[in-house]
Design a protein around this nucleic acid. Sequence first.
DNA 1: CGTATCCTTGATGCCTCTCAAGACGGGTGG
DNA 2: CCACCCGTCTTGAGAGGCATCAAGGATACG
Lengths: 256, 256
Amino acid sequence: MLAFSTPLKRVNPAKAVENQCVPIACADCGIYNLCFAVGGDADLSLLNTLVKNRRTYRRGEPLFSIGEPYRAVFAIRSGSVKTSVLTDDGRIQVTGLHIAGELIGLNSFVADRYSCEARALETTSVCEVPFDRYEELVAQVPGLQHQLLKIMSQEIIHNQEMMLLLGKKRAEERLASFFINLSRRFKRHGKPAEELNLSMSRSDIGNYLGLAEETVCRVISRFEEESLISTQRRIVRLLQPARLQSISKGGPSAAK
Amino acid sequence: MLAFSTPLKRVNPAKAVENQCVPIACADCGIYNLCFAVGGDADLSLLNTLVKNRRTYRRGEPLFSIGEPYRAVFAIRSGSVKTSVLTDDGRIQVTGLHIAGELIGLNSFVADRYSCEARALETTSVCEVPFDRYEELVAQVPGLQHQLLKIMSQEIIHNQEMMLLLGKKRAEERLASFFINLSRRFKRHGKPAEELNLSMSRSDIGNYLGLAEETVCRVISRFEEESLISTQRRIVRLLQPARLQSISKGGPSAAK
DNA sequence: CGTATCCTTGATGCCTCTCAAGACGGGTGG
DNA sequence: CCACCCGTCTTGAGAGGCATCAAGGATACG
């Protein structure tokens, strides 16, 4: 427990946007409204001047690439973004899938260059928080750095779960975990928890879960046969979330 | 580049201990001496009072367990520690291997409970930085939070590499990556870069790399046949680091 | 309406896991 | 000092899950 932390308040994402505040969060954690973390109105206006820098990216367009000089942190306002790293011979590992209200670009904080690439999965609107201006923010807003610590801490926990998934789970468990995790995040962001818009191809999903595109298809088909889900292209409806949850944890359906 | 950051100075680990400073770092980044990051002598003495809390753990003894209330960050003075997470049905994923000079427990910053367990791989001496006292430290030492951001950022980058390894690399590439990464870290900490003391069983290595114990053995045997390494139990000598490096990146020896 | 992209399904093969048994080494007690 | 024991390491044989290769079908877009 952090006694020195300003208590955080979870707010309606729509309201956050309406208030011109930065919706700031990371994969697998809720929307935290920085304005609340920060407090005063003076700070709030400062924040606004810093995050006015908005931009829209089209499907497939990179927000940043590996090795590119570090320039900004990105808060996703709408749409979705994937981040990925590469082997030298071109194999891709998608390391993150980020939806509206989440934050990307923090992982390159230590270096002066981006350590992964980020691409819009669909038409995506972001707030860019330029790094030089960010310094002003940190200097004047005492709660900010601690807030970032929390967000990064949450991301590390999420990464640990991904390592468990990639290192120890079988294909069905991976897909089930993927759907359950996504469902939880959608719910937090005020979207329907049982009707997911994946907004990414089977191939991307495979690259994220450490599977081949075809395996993703096959498992999805199997899930449909068992009436666990129903799909239309990239729309997935969770028909039996409880059983999916059970499978994701290595339940009997996955026949350990 | 972070204009607001106090420049960091890499120091000799032995000297750091001698000076009673906290060697503070994370997997895959060098030793940073907090005293330098912090500056003044007043701070330094404060730091000393905070990190006096030392303790030794024996092989297999847990530093903390999953779900346990968060109480401290640990800086490893000597020895080594593994961190791991579990599936509900008992499968283990080792998420980190930490050697002297590195820092663990940061990932649970956000929650009030530990999200992974940590166990000593051998007799291990650590500085515990109790969390309640840590607050004093943060309040009085302006550079500290930013320093932690950097360390956590570095850990996220390392996690990304692990995801690439677990999701996309074959067994030989994983072992090669493991040895090369360990070698680099040993070197940074003033230990021989080509004679590694793994201090962990084949089983632990397997759990770290997402492989079965037997596969680890087989790959190691193959590496020995090709004179890439030589081994005596848990001591590994890198005979051809360059080729290992090549293999780790998906080079020809691994026959993509 | 054609084309490109994505999705789906089948057949085949291989990498790695699993099961199994034995070897090695270090520690302990006689 | 030696014999024993237990954990760890090693190697083999077999099976299985998933990748790969291949081809056809569906959907979106210009």
